[in-house]
Simulated scan of single mutants.
Amino acid sequence: MNSNSQLIKLFLVVAFSCTSLLVSLTPVLAKPIPNRSDVKTTLAQAITLNQPPIPPGPAPGGRVRGGAKRGPDGCPLTKLDLTALVPFTKEANSVINVWGQTTVEHPSWFFYVPYTKDLPYAVEFVLQEDPESKDSKEIYRTAIALPDKPGVIRVSLPTNTPALAVDKQYRWFFTINCDKEKNSPPTYVEGVIKRVNLSAATVKELETTEPRKRYAIYTQKGIWYEALTTLAELRQKNPQDAALQAEWRNLLGSIHLDDVAGEPIIPGTP
């Protein structure tokens, strides 16, 4: 066999070997390797609140964030302000409306609190009925203990207080008074909550589905308070669940509260 024939034979052997190797690797190479952004996209279900329109009548107004320091004895500046974890809209006239719906008689509110229990600040939560009336009746008032560290706390309406009535609006206030003598204005947030009924079909669906799906149903129906409460409870039961953390960030981001979305939920709050 001459040298040319040997070279041709060697070339054919090498080509066949390379082809076999590529064929054997094809199933492996065909599998896509997820990158970090793909994982995040999978974890965050992109569930956002279907915010209902503000009811007819006087605008609810409100305040979603507490202010900065006022006066020498006012609340000191912090990295993040006192923040109510509630939906709000900014109108063309710069008026902010803080308003959300619930379906339960005794709902829960969530607030980001930047101050801790080592500070001698007086904190209160107040709920009033008939927010449009000058003679609003106070139905609940309670002192709130500051947490061990800055974070999101939960305030629940006790079952021994009057139940929220369906199709009735209530105004709530969360106030921190940093001045013992109360000569300086407190920092506070406020808004309006309304209890509504869901359809019988939706109620049945909620009763027969798991919490993660209930959370999605509440957001779709525009029920902010139960959506947030359900997700908060899921996070506290599964603190290492990255998908729940992503959903929490996504939900708060959808109402423009991205800055507090990464703050911890303080366990054991009222």
Rank of each mutant, 00 (worst) to 15 (best):
residue 167 D to A: 14
residue 114 P to E: 04
residue 57 G to N: 03
residue 221 K to V: 04
residue 111 F to H: 11
residue 87 P to C: 04
residue 39 V to Q: 09
residue 12 L to T: 02
residue 157 L to D: 10
residue 212 R to H: 06
residue 109 W to T: 07
residue 263 E to Y: 00
residue 252 L to S: 10
residue 182 K to A: 15
residue 172 W to R: 09
residue 262 G to W: 08
residue 195 R to K: 15
residue 217 I to D: 07
residue 75 C to K: 00
residue 230 T to S: 14
residue 249 R to M: 13
residue 75 C to T: 04
residue 116 T to G: 04
residue 233 E to K: 10
residue 171 R to E: 13
residue 93 N to P: 07
residue 101 Q to I: 07
residue 258 D to Y: 09
residue 235 R to Q: 14
residue 227 A to Y: 02
residue 239 P to T: 01
residue 172 W to A: 03
residue 145 A to I: 02
residue 94 S to H: 12
residue 116 T to V: 15
residue 44 A to M: 05
residue 96 I to M: 06
residue 253 G to L: 08
residue 62 G to N: 05
residue 178 C to F: 13
residue 213 K to V: 14
residue 67 G to F: 08
residue 146 L to C: 05
residue 81 D to S: 13
residue 250 N to P: 00
residue 75 C to Y: 02
residue 142 T to C: 02
residue 243 A to C: 10
residue 252 L to K: 10
residue 11 F to A: 13
residue 266 I to M: 08
residue 262 G to F: 05
residue 159 T to A: 13
residue 105 E to F: 12
residue 108 S to H: 00
residue 228 L to T: 06
residue 77 L to I: 12
residue 85 L to H: 09
residue 54 I to W: 00
residue 171 R to W: 02
residue 14 V to G: 04
residue 231 L to S: 07
residue 236 Q to P: 03
residue 56 P to G: 01
residue 149 K to Q: 07
residue 174 F to G: 09
residue 147 P to H: 09
residue 211 P to L: 11
residue 17 S to H: 01
residue 250 N to Y: 11
residue 42 T to I: 13
residue 152 V to F: 03
residue 135 D to C: 01
residue 168 K to P: 01
residue 204 K to Y: 12
